[in-house]
Amino acid sequence: MTKDLDPLLLSQLRLAVMSHLMVAREAEFNALKQHTGATAGNLSAQIAKLQEAGYIEVVKTYKGSYPLTICKITPTGIAAFEVFFEDLKTYFPL
């Protein structure tokens, strides 16, 4: 029997961000932008939703004199992704 999937992760961009952070643990905003091919505005909006849910943590810092935004996956985010993946498997019975 199939399970309902976490709607927050059923968005293409949010899932791409979360998948990337699952393997990279943390990534610079620009690296995520490059990886997903999203526009900065759209990516910011989706990151804000993930942050609001507690799935990721956003750290704003500086690299020299340039501002740097780093996104990190949280334990809540890791758990949510694992549940999502387990639920996803129910759609592909062996």
Binding site: L9, L10, S11, Q12, L13, L15, A16, Q46, L88, Y91
Partner: peptide, 14 residues
């Protein structure tokens, strides 16, 4: 902005 995925697409992205 928010393309909603089906399970196959989700799995492909992962």
């Amino acid at each position: 902005e928010e393309k909603i995925l089906n399970p196959q697409e989700s799995l492909r992205i992962i």
